[in-house]
Design a protein around this nucleic acid. Structure first.
Length: 604
DNA sequence: CTAGGGTTAG
């Protein structure tokens, strides 16, 4: 045997081993060691082994080395290009990954399905629908748009970019045979991630009825549970929990976290806690979700205890966790603890406070009535853009709540420096004037908004009755179709009884708006005629609940904005009059009304 | 050889 054929024989036996080593390697040291061995064997230069090396370097995040290798290759095939692209994508450089698609076209190597799915998922990371559409078009031309994986990646891409309709169009255009568990799960998550819980639930129901016995996997289940959480569908959520148990996914942490979140958002903290307690060795995300849940129920000290438990177990909190703990302090009036936490975030946990932490802390001070301190902190925060808008808007509402019109004007000034969507802030401003008795000024803000064509999302509430949810809008007098009259009569009657109980407020109050406006911040009530023209959406939902939900069952109402003080008072009094429990989930937290008082102790 | 899906907040 000659020397060369000896080496060739060695290479032939060693190659499979080395390739195997490369495939399993995810650290630079072992990849480069194997690379060296391949070089020694003289077997590193073939396209196949170069591709393996390329992919391995990509997997361990060494895009520079992968690129160097790629540039030095004599021949590059579609795998070489795709491996490099994938390396860029997983190294957090999705823009560079997509750019390779054009470079590839110029060099005359046609992409395959692997290439398109990698490119599409890179666009998903960028949440760039424009770029994604270009990838989609190229895939279409090349005949890969119907591929199962490619179309699933496109569904995900459109979804992440917020183009739900486009995502659904891709999903619907898929050949039925190409639609598998992953594509269904992707479409479900598109809905769930875009706050379209009702659509997710409906699609899941379609899968159940004509899905050819496709068992729900943990991806689908976590998305649907997430969807139930978003829209507060406790009934369906419980049912999905049953399916989780039935299919043996209760030990999956992601599913468990989704359940913790769902129960907490549907008003049953005890179930959240139960699901959380089953998770062994909870990581930062389960801990964060239970802390946030605990905070929402106003159990501030309990949330702090969970936090120290977590830290004690060596679980590193992240930025979201700290935001949750700050929320806990805020909702329970633990102002000093909250401020200490904000000040020690960097030194204790290595996390720099960002705009949301400052906003939360400013909100906490504002709620507690420490408005001067709140202003100081707001000035110190140095936030920009939309973050600043949120921060100053929250301060503006604090000024309003504490009837500090002097400071409100100052905060209003700050808010107006930001030219984005200022509708919410203007509404708060107008309410500040209204509650200070300056109705003309309040009306001026409104006419200003009308002139500038600024609209605000209407406040709405909904209630689930026998697995159907009924939606109500403030000022709309026809809730749930035919029962509108009954609801209005009931509320009218309740208002009378509330007065007997010494309730000073009204279900309706002085109005500032024109009749055609349906603004949540204002009640409509025509004095003297005893006719309720409009009323807050949560009261309409409560009215329907009182009519149809059997006595003894708590009435659960969901709302997309914060509950106003008047409604909060009304709910308290009504809970005493009718001797029932109400649970209201508002934008931020839960209110549990019982026997004339609320779990938040009027602090929220 | 190279590809697709789920969780905490806002």
């Amino acid at each position: 045997m000659t020397a060369t054929s000896n080496a060739a024989a060695g290479a032939a036996t060693l190659m499979p081993l080395l390739i195997h080593l490369l495939r399993g390697a995810s650290d630079l040291a072992s990849v480069s060691a194997t690379h060296a061995k391949l070089l020694k064997l003289g077997a590193a230069s073939s396209v196949a082994s170069s591709n393996h090396l390329l992919a391995a370097y990509g997997r361990c995040g060494c895009t520079a080395l992968a690129r160097h290798l790629f540039d030095g290759m004599r021949d590059r095939n579609v795998v070489s290009w795709t491996a490099l692209m994938s390396g860029y994508a997983s190294a957090g450089r999705p823009r560079a990954a997509v750019a390779l698609l054009r470079a590839m076209a110029r060099s005359g190597v046609p992409p395959n399905a692997f290439t398109f799915s990698t490119a599409a998922s890179s666009c998903a990371r960028l949440a760039d629908a424009g770029l994604g559409r270009q990838v989609h078009a190229r895939a279409e031309v090349a005949g890969y748009a119907c591929d199962s994986v490619v179309s699933t990646a496109l569904v995900d891409m459109y979804g992440k970019a917020g183009r739900v309709g486009d995502a659904r169009a891709v999903f619907d255009a898929m050949p039925v045979t190409a639609r598998n568990a992953v594509s269904w799960a992707s479409m479900l998550s598109v809905y769930a991630q875009n706050a379209l819980g009702h659509d997710a639930i409906q699609l899941f129901a379609e899968l159940r009825t004509n899905g050819e016995d496709m068992a729900p996997n943990h991806f689908m289940l976590s998305s649907v549970v997430n969807a139930c959480a978003g829209v507060g569908r406790l009934g369906i959520g419980k049912c999905i929990h049953g399916m989780v148990l039935h299919h043996g996914h209760e030990d999956n942490d992601v599913v468990a976290v989704a359940l913790v979140d769902m129960y907490s958002k549907c008003g049953i903290y005890e179930y959240s806690k139960k699901v959380f307690d089953r998770i062994n060795q909870p990581s930062v995300i389960p801990y964060t979700s239970i802390i946030v849940a605990t905070a929402k129920y106003g159990l501030g000290r309990c949330a702090l205890a969970l936090f120290s438990d977590m830290v004690g177990r060596g679980v590193q909190p992240n930025s979201v966790t700290l935001l949750g703990v700050l929320h806990a302090c805020s909702h329970s009036g633990l102002v000093d603890t909250g401020l200490q936490l904000l000040r020690s975030m960097r030194s204790e946990y290595g996390i720099d406070p960002c705009a949301s932490h400052y906003t939360c802390a400013v909100d906490m001070l504002g709620r507690a009535g420490q408005l001067e301190e709140a202003f100081e902190l707001a000035d110190e925060a140095q936030v920009n853009g939309n973050d600043a808008l949120m921060l100053w808007s929250s301060l503006l509402s604090a000024c309003r709540n504490h009837k500090r019109l002097d400071l409100a004007t100052m905060a209003g000034q700050k808010v107006s420096e930001f030219t984005q969507d200022v509708a919410g802030a203007l509404v708060v401003m107008s309410n500040a004037y209204a509650s200070a008795g300056q109705a003309d000024d309040a009306a001026a803000v409104w006419s200003n908004m009308r002139r500038r064509g600024i609209r605000k999302d209407p406040g709405c509430s909904w209630i689930e009755i026998k697995d159907i949810s009924y939606m109500f809008y403030a000022g709309v007098v026809s809730p749930a179709g035919s029962r509108a009259g009954e609801v209005m009569l009931l509320l009218d009657e309740l208002e009378g009884k509330m007065r007997e109980k010494g309730y000073k407020g009204r279900i309706g109050s002085a109005r500032v708006l024109d009749a055609d406006e349906e603004e949540d911040g204002n009640h409509h009530h025509q004095e003297g005629r005893g006719v309720m023209v409009g009323v807050h959406s949560e009261l309409l939902a409560l009215g329907l609940g009182l009519l149809v939900i059997p006595k003894g069952m708590a009435i659960r109402v969901m709302k997309n904005l914060r509950m106003c003080r008047d409604c909060h008072e009304a709910f308290k009094v009504i809970s005493a009059i009718v001797e029932r429990e109400f649970v209201v989930r508002d934008l931020n937290r839960f209110h549990h009304f019982r026997m004339g008082s609320c779990s938040c102790n009027d602090y929220w």
